[in-house]
Computed example of a mutant assay.
Amino acid sequence: MENETGYNESKITTEKALQMLKSEGLEVTFEQAEEILYFLRKIANIAVLKHLNKTE
């Protein structure tokens, strides 16, 4: 799905994360998958901000 800027805004859903983790042999609950996604998004945001601050 693209927005008016042309960027893809699709996100990994909790259900998709559960599927991906299960395919790697990890059994987690829905709530655990939500927490994992939250953590990964937080880390990604920090990495992007750090990179942007470095290039200024």
Rank of each mutant, 00 (worst) to 15 (best):
E2I: 05
K11N: 06
A33R: 00
E24T: 06
N8K: 11
Q19H: 14
A17E: 03
L21I: 05
T14Y: 02
T14I: 06
K54L: 15
K16P: 04
E9G: 05
F39Y: 11
T13H: 15
L37H: 13
K16G: 11
A47I: 13
K22W: 10
E27M: 05
L37A: 14
I12Q: 13
A33H: 01
K54M: 09
T29K: 09
T5P: 00
L18C: 02
K22G: 12
K22L: 11
I12D: 06
E24Q: 11
E4R: 11
K50N: 04
M1H: 15
L49Y: 04
K42C: 02
L52H: 07
L49T: 07
M1E: 14
E27T: 08
E34A: 14
N3C: 01
E2F: 07
E35V: 12
E24D: 10
E31A: 05
T5H: 05
N3S: 03
K42L: 03
L18M: 05
T13F: 15
K11T: 14
Q32D: 09
K42Y: 02
E31M: 03
G6V: 00
Y38C: 09
L52P: 00
A47Q: 11
T13E: 15
E56V: 05
E27G: 02
S10A: 09
L52D: 07
S10N: 07
K11F: 08
M20H: 13
L21F: 02
F30K: 13
M1Y: 14
I43Y: 01
L37D: 04
T29F: 04
T5Q: 07
A33Q: 01
E4D: 09
K16L: 14
M1I: 12
T14R: 01
T55W: 05
E2W: 02
F39D: 12
K11M: 12
G6N: 00
E35I: 13
I12E: 13
I36D: 01
I12N: 07
T5F: 04
M1F: 08
F39R: 14
E15A: 15
K54N: 12
L21R: 01
K22E: 12
G6K: 01
A17W: 03
F30H: 07
L40D: 04
E35F: 08
E31T: 08
I36S: 01
L37N: 10
E27R: 04
E27A: 09
T55F: 08
G6I: 01
Q32C: 09
E27C: 03
E34L: 09
K50D: 05
S10Y: 06
N53K: 10
E9M: 04
Q32K: 14
L18H: 00
F30C: 03
T29Y: 07
L40S: 03
N8S: 12
H51M: 04
K22Q: 15
K11H: 11
K11L: 12
L40P: 01
Q19W: 12
F30W: 05
E31L: 05
